[in-house]
């Protein structure tokens, strides 16, 4: 990944997480894991051009399960936030957005994601509370 450091990279990306996406396509997302006493906040960031494979929206459920397994996170205490950075487009609807993703947990795996758009302030609140 090219190293241009944006605010969001500093704030929300600790590592580039490689995963096998749909049809085993090599895929990447930004990842930040914040351990708290009663919860683990996971922020995944869509890398757009830098991700050769599946988008995090398309692969959200499987990705959350993979991250929980690889990072040894208790899925019942995992808060999963999806981050879509500003694309730098002239269109104002393509700005940075955050979604709190809520899943059903079936057989210790995530299913049926529901996205709830939240603000950056909400994200900070979740991280800091």
């Amino acid at each position: 990944m090219s190293k241009k450091v944006n605010d969001y990279e500093q704030n929300y990306i600790e590592e580039i997480f490689d995963f096998k996406g749909l049809w085993d396509m090599p895929s990447k997302c930004g990842l930040k894991v914040i351990e708290k006493t009663d919860k683990t906040v996971v922020i995944v960031t869509d890398l757009y051009h830098e991700n050769p494979g599946t988008s995090i929206t398309e692969f959200c459920t499987q990705l959350a399960t993979i991250i929980a397994k690889e990072k040894n996170i208790n899925i019942n205490k995992m808060i999963f936030i999806q981050h879509n950075p500003d694309l730098g487009s002239k269109y104002d609807f393509l700005v940075e957005s955050f979604d709190l993703v809520k899943f059903e947990i079936v057989n210790n795996e995530f299913q049926n994601p529901k996205w709830e758009n939240i603000s950056k302030e909400d994200v900070e609140k979740i991280i800091n509370e």
């Binding site: 988008s55 929206t57 398309e58 999806q82 979604d99 996205w115 758009n117």
Partner: peptide, 14 residues
């Protein structure tokens, strides 16, 4: 269309 940003965005937004 599937596998586009428009699909992703509109899917998340229901």
């Amino acid at each position: 269309f599937r596998h586009t940003k428009s699909y992703d965005d509109l899917l998340r937004q229901g």
